[in-house]
Design a binder for these strands. Structure first.
Lengths: 266, 266
DNA sequence: TATGCCATTCCGCTATACTGGAATGATGGC
DNA sequence: GCCATCATTCCAGTATAGCGGAATGGCATA
């Protein structure tokens, strides 16, 4: 589960099994983000065309993929939405969190998200855009280095310094602009996040947003996820305290709903 | 694509391919609705245990399945949520409809849904529960005969009588209580729904709700989906006109949004 | 501790799914 | 119209994925 010795499946070498091809195809479309032809997919994942055509047809039959246009492009299918919705209903954290995220977004009129670790990366698990149609970032489920986000500081804050260094891939200490993030600096930011139970910073992914993050804890006090607000920098500065308070209040409510809130784990 | 000569994949006979097993497993968990052990899944879909264990492990690695408890039960995984969310963003109708469904639900304080055809069946594609926590029906994506629902009348109303009879499997003219639905009656209900641009009736699936449905149309006037309200029968009777008007208004807005030139992005 | 039941893992065999490459079809430029 | 280019489908061979069955492990109850 942890992020160390991750066995690679879609590996090079001999022939691959259908299952792995299937997973590759879905993940590829998800990551690439745009509808593609079977041929493009084959090239994209480096698989034989004949195999991809064969599997893709089966996936269309099952509504895991869906025809997108008349040029033969395909994209993720409706069935995935159905399965995903079912997952949400069953998974306590997200089920409970969804109304909270919606309420926070409605109250602040900014984009609100629930973020989590996925392996050694950060992902947005839920998002509600604020009133303005600024285009919700909406990269739900797209993994990003933990180091790039305010939430990341909180998500790793339960670990010791050594564990953190061990946990985060060295490559992730390079920011999107190519500049390095000093380990020492990162650790001290984490220390501050841990102490405050809150962290906020300008996004390093874009040039115009500021992100506020607060931890959502289980009953052992472990940080399961972060609730966060993404706002234009202007707005974030002007309404800093208001947004922070709103965020902290909702995060506390959600933690309470989950039966959490105790201190640290034993 | 239509619902006639559907080639069966998970069929009996020789050995099955992994892809088909995978799809079977996910659909089985979705339909059964509760977390299961690999062994239960194997029995449930009638597949060899060794195969299911093997595939299930791979699916857990890929987060398509997720450990559910410490007794080894598994359920649909987070990745499915991510893929499903991505589908939603890309699919105009659902992306546009989501705020409408939310608004309708908020305004009426009843459960609101967007329903569509899936092959020759009816499915709920989006749902927002009303204020009360009556437990949202929330069978998102679970196929139901079109004949069982108010929405079904509208969803087939674009077809001729012969086409309808041809389209709907004979078995679906049996209602959940085992009684038959007369073809003639069904057709005349459709005629009425078509004329009114609205249909409402008590649910035949349960004994305490009433369902209001209105069409959402594309620019050619075809019924893409229905917007609907599910309310307790008491409430539905008392607030009948109010709920109908609210529904029709939102359905018209949504139709306008889509007809205004909504297009898919390349 | 012994016993029975069931879930899970292990293992060798072989039917077949995946593949490479070639044939066919579609598209667009000239 | 006639190529050139690329997407898609067809096909036969073989590496291997899926299978059955047997071994192991877990967890009760006696």
């Amino acid at each position: 589960m942890a992020g160390k010795a991750e066995k690679e499946h879609g590996e090079a070498g001999g022939r691959a099994r259908g299952i792995d091809r299937l997973i590759q195809i879905l993940e590829y479309l998800h990551e690439d983000g745009r509808p593609q032809r079977p041929n493009d997919i084959a090239v994209g994942i480096g698989a034989p065309k004949s195999s991809v055509y064969e599997i893709v047809n089966r996936l269309v039959d099952a509504n895991f993929l869906e025809p997108f246009d008349r040029e033969g492009r395909l994209f993720l299918g409706r069935k995935l939405h159905f399965l995903g919705a079912h997952y949400l209903e069953t998974f306590d954290l997200l089920r409970e969190a969804d109304p909270t995220v919606a309420a926070l977004s409605a109250e602040t009129r900014e984009t609100a998200q629930l973020c989590m670790c996925e392996g050694d990366k950060y992902v947005v698990a839920l998002a509600h855009s604020g009133g303005r149609h600024f285009k919700i970032s909406s990269d739900i489920g797209r993994p990003i280095p933990l180091t790039w986000t305010a939430s990341g500081r909180l998500l790793v804050a339960d670990r010791s310094e050594n564990e953190i260094i061990d946990f985060i891939p060295p490559a992730d200490f390079t920011l999107p602009d190519g500049k390095p993030l000093a380990t020492r600096k990162f650790l001290s930011q984490i220390e501050s996040a841990r102490a405050e139970g809150f962290y906020s910073s300008d996004s390093v992914v874009d040039d115009y947003t500021h992100c506020f993050a607060a931890p959502v804890r289980d009953r052992d006090g472990a940080c399961l996820a972060t609730l966060c607000i993404v706002a234009p920098r202007e707005e974030a500065k002007r309404r800093h305290d208001e947004l922070r308070d709103s965020l902290l209040r909702h995060a506390a409510t959600l933690t309470a709903k989950l039966g959490g809130g105790a201190k640290r784990r034993p």
